[in-house]
Structure formats: structure tokens, C-alpha cells
């Protein structure tokens, strides 16, 4: 909330280095370092195991470019879908404060379920809904001749299913933190609800939306279980990076390490650049 006179003061980082130093008790350093090590060391082990001497040769395999392109494209599409539908859902959740508490909590629980559901089960659920014999899928097939499983669209759907909750929860948090009185102020200036949403609410929660989109994209990029179950696995159509890494592990571990490395590097690059650009765009 840059420069907001009414925003929570807690959102502002302390300006002076002294204040920042005294803000971290020594007792937190040890667990913090351990946590970081726990998160980073497995990746270090992976990087160490990569057959660096054969790297160029293994990287040149056309499957890598194909599945990387598919992964980036489908994760981007899943993020776009999540933004399109997830922001309105987050808005409804954030504005449900006056609802019946049971209804409100149920709604939130339902949104959170894909986070805790094993992705493979999520994939089966998607098949049961959208498969050609599925609850809805049978009509898609009978009326429109649309069969979703084993298509790139199915990859995007599976990724959206598991990744959208991250965006919804992040955006909902941002909405709750935003000063609603600014919307009142906009209303008294004659703005319609839609105008207010676009020109006031959305810009105010932009940092939250950006953070949610980043999480969502990252989750979509790493998606495996729901994709393999709902979309299947076929090079160039549904075989994303994680699928190709998993399969390579069965027959050619070196190739699997290289694929994992590429996935790792791409994820880090995307996350770092996206975050910096978006956040700096808001705080500058």
C-alpha cells in the first residue's frame, strides 16, 4: 500500500537499518537458517548430481524444448484463467463477512480443498466431471463433440484446478486488508460498482494479486498428479516438464536430472523477474 495514509502501518518496512537490525531477535536466526537450508539443500543435491559434462548433449534433446514450451504456455494460461475467475471469487469470499458463518466457512473450505486434495485424486475428480463419460463431459461430447481428456486444454484445466486456490487466498487476504472506505469515497464521486472495482479496488490489491499470480504460476508449472491423471501424457500435447522428468527417471536418470535443472532454473528466473517487475511497478 504505497503511500497510503490509511493503510496498515505494519505493511511498511522500517526505514532505518538500525530499526531493522533490532527487529530480528537472535533466537530466530538459527531456525531461520535451518529452514532455508532445509528448503535449499535438496536442490543443491540435485544440481550436484546433474551430469554437467553431458549437459549440452542432453539439453539438445528436442523433447526438452517441447515440454518446456508446453509447460510455460499451459502454466501461463492457467494463471490467466485463475486471474479471470479467481479474483471475482476472492471478492465474493472477502465480502461474505455478513453471511451466515456456516455458509461462509463452508465456501472457504471448498475453495481450499484442492490445496489439500492429493492431485491425483483431483485428476480423477476432473475425469469424473469432464471426462467423456463424466457428469458434464458426457454432454460436452454428445452436444458439441468436445472431448477434453488428453488435450492441452485438459492440462490447463488440471493446472487451474490445483493452482487457482493459491491465487484466491492471496487476493482475498489483500481484499480484506484493503481500506473499503476508499470504495465508499469513490461511490460518493458518482462511480459505478464496476468503475470502482477497476479503478480503485484492483489497483489497491495489485500487490496481493501479483503475489497470488506468482504462486499460482509456480504451482501450475510444477503440477504433476492431476495432469497425468486428467490429461494423460503425450509429447507435445500433454507432456509437461514434470511428466517428462518423471518418465525420464524410469529409464534415463541423467536426462531426468537435466530436465529438473531446467525446470528449476526457469522457475527461479520467472519468479524473480515477475516479482521484481510487478512489485516495483506498484511501489515506485
Amino acid at each position: 500500500m504505497r503511500g497510503s495514509r490509511t493503510g496498515s502501518p505494519g505493511l511498511r518496512a522500517p526505514r532505518s537499518p538500525d530499526a531493522r537490525r533490532s527487529g530480528i531477535p537472535a533466537a530466530l536466526w538459527a531456525p531461520a537458517v535451518l529452514a532455508l537450508a532445509f528448503l535449499v539443500l535438496p536442490l543443491v543435491a540435485l544440481v550436484v548430481r546433474v551430469p554437467w559434462s553431458r549437459l549440452p548433449e542432453l539439453l539438445a534433446a528436442p523433447e526438452i524444448a517441447t515440454s518446456l514450451g508446453l509447460s510455460l504456455g499451459s502454466a501461463a494460461a492457467a494463471t490467466a484463467l485463475s486471474l479471470l475467475f479467481g479474483i471475482p471469487l476472492a471478492w465474493v469470499l472477502a465480502r461474505s463477512a455478513h453471511w451466515n458463518p456456516v455458509a461462509r466457512r463452508s465456501l472457504r473450505a471448498l475453495v481450499t480443498v484442492p490445496l489439500v486434495l492429493p492431485p491425483v485424486v483431483g485428476g480423477v475428480a476432473l475425469l469424473l466431471l469432464l471426462g467423456r463419460r463424466g457428469l458434464l463431459g458426457q454432454y460436452l461430447d454428445a452436444w458439441f463433440g468436445i472431448q477434453l481428456p488428453f488435450t492441452t486444454a485438459a492440462v490447463v484445466i488440471a493446472q487451474t484446478f490445483v493452482a487457482m486456490p493459491f491465487l484466491v487466498l492471496a487476493v482475498e487476504g489483500a481484499l480484506r486488508g484493503a481500506d473499503r472506505r476508499l470504495e465508499d469515497a469513490a461511490a460518493t464521486l458518482g462511480a459505478s460498482d464496476w468503475f470502482i472495482f477497476r479503478r480503485v479496488t484492483l489497483p489497491l490489491i495489485a500487490p496481493g494479486v501479483a503475489a497470488g499470480a506468482v504462486l499460482c504460476f509456480a504451482r501450475a508449472l510444477g503440477e504433476f498428479g492431476a495432469t497425468i491423471t486428467f490429461a494423460g501424457n503425450f509429447p507435445g500435447v500433454t507432456q509437461t516438464m514434470p511428466l517428462s522428468a518423471y518418465l525420464a527417471l524410469q529409464s534415463n536418470p541423467d536426462a531426468a536430472y537435466v530436465i529438473s535443472l531446467v525446470l528449476l532454473v526457469v522457475s527461479v528466473l520467472v519468479l524473480v523477474s515477475l516479482r521484481d517487475r510487478w512489485v516495483s511497478g506498484v511501489t515506485a
Binding site: 495514509r5 490509511t6 476508499l182
Partner: peptide, 20 residues
């Protein structure tokens, strides 16, 4: 009539200027 249709100007306590 909703606030937007009233033609009333309001200056709020903290002014509530749009920070962005």
C-alpha cells in the same frame, strides 16, 4: 438512491485520497 446517484460531495475524515 445509491451514493453514486446522489450528487453529494463528501470529504472523509482521513480524506481517503486514492493512494495509487
Amino acid at each position: 438512491l445509491p451514493p453514486a446517484a446522489r450528487g453529494i460531495g463528501v470529504v472523509f475524515q482521513d480524506y481517503l485520497l486514492f493512494p495509487h
